[in-house]
Design a protein around this nucleic acid. Structure first.
Lengths: 243, 243
DNA sequence: TCCGCAATTAAGTATGACGATTTAATGTCC
DNA sequence: GGACATTAAATCGTCATACTTAATTGCGGA
């Protein structure tokens, strides 16, 4: 339903080219300042100039490259990259500076999700409250044994509902990002084989708080959850300085 | 230096077409479900199909439209729009549901900026602290009389520095968004002709807190600032339900 | 040395043709 | 008469090519 990792090759030659060029650039192949030439790309990837140009247009809209006459397609410095673009996020999560990316995103979660939880407590519909409870119980059920797959499903769904119930379109749009982070954490990083019971408990508590309209409570608990996720990240991949 | 509203027509026919199509779609002209035809667009805007196709590719990457064979270019439902794309934000801020957009963004600010302020207090360089103080003083200087223009410059710069000093690339990237919100507020909405002295004072306090490494303090004061901005919105444009 | 003009280069635009794919209409068989 | 297969039409997708535009380079003259 909610497209996410379905951003694979996609249909169309240009999409497939994009799926090769984007990761190549974000991975640090073609470092910033590199100049790519349309004709060379066309030859290299065995597609027409038209296709290359369309892919470049998209990269340009992500501020990954800049196309200028008589110069070529220049890779832009990373500070200019539109790091909020889901595609860019996906590419970077799959690439080399994955830890850095994961940290940035988790920090973003720690800022947004508590506020979203508060709003959800004030605005969630009965249906959403039910969904929340359901997924919280799902977490409880799957927190023991080797059910990481199912645990992840409920975890992602839970946070999605929170973000959606906040009735803020920006927050809701972060559902895919959160899903990517949670999925990525389970996939690549060595996650605790047994999800921590404290985390499970807190999810249940958030569901309760939302159901009871306790905004402050929901926010407080969610803040703990996300701060824990941040701390967890430091344990698993201790980096030097990365907020 | 920091491109932002410079996203005007841009160079190239395709960019100019984008600057016309994007706003048209986000403004609700061509409502979701509408089918546009490449050839018609080409004729209507007096450009070649090549140009139309490149513009459509960009709109497609923003999830504003979907292009399918034998169907045409379909406008997607708003829930799928990539509302974090700076271009989309700009278009929507200029369009009809501007109040709604302003509210969403201000809420986002209220979530992110306090956390950014805390991080800034922990990580800001001496240079950044100096910049912060400078702009805070600039706010004090321009808060009286008819100097809204200059006040805005310092306001935008101040928040930009906070976001940048947080050393989080996602946060830093929101600098443009904040700039758009603050600028928009001053431009269109009837802003207080005299910026509130309390706000000015709080900015000075944030600068102090950051300088002294008081993360908790910086976060607390920034939270007040952004919550006030939210309340201000409700006063100026009282909407029914919009987080 | 500096200024300006011309040549060069690569992206930008336009057009025509063909292929691929999806939707719809048609027709056939049961 | 309805279900399914076949055919047809419409539109995007891709390609090749020719031409245009802009920017950089470099040459030559003042």
């Amino acid at each position: 339903m909610t497209s996410q990792a379905a951003d694979g090759p996609g249909r169309g030659l240009h999409a497939r080219l994009l799926a090769r060029l984007g990761p190549a650039i974000t991975a640090g192949d073609h470092p910033p300042g590199t100049v790519l030439l349309t004709d060379e790309l066309a030859e290299q990837y065995e597609v027409s100039r038209t296709v290359v140009r369309e892919a470049v247009r998209v990269l340009e809209s992500m501020h990954l490259v800049e196309s200028r006459r008589r110069v070529g397609v220049t890779v832009l410095p990373t500070e200019q990259w539109n790091v909020f673009d889901p595609q860019v996020i996906t590419w970077r999560l799959a690439g080399a500076d994955r830890p850095r990316q994961l940290r940035s995103l988790t920090r973003l979660r720690s800022a947004v999700e508590p506020v979203a939880a508060r709003l959800a407590a004030e605005l969630a519909t009965p249906e959403e409250c039910a969904e929340l409870t359901e997924h919280a119980l799902g977490l409880v059920r799957t927190s023991r044994g080797e059910q990481l797959e199912n645990y992840l499903v409920h975890d992602v769904a839970f946070h999605r509902v929170i973000l959606r119930a906040s009735r803020n379109e920006m927050f809701a749009r972060l559902g895919d990002v959160v899903a990517a982070v949670l999925t990525g954490r389970t996939e690549h990083e060595v996650m605790f084989s047994d999800p921590r019971q404290e985390a499970v408990t807190m999810h249940v508590q958030v569901a309760e708080a939302v159901r009871e309209g306790d905004g402050a409570g929901a926010e407080r608990i969610m803040r703990t959850i996300t701060e824990d996720a941040l701390a967890e990240l430091d344990v698993l991949a201790p980096g030097p300085t990365a907020p």
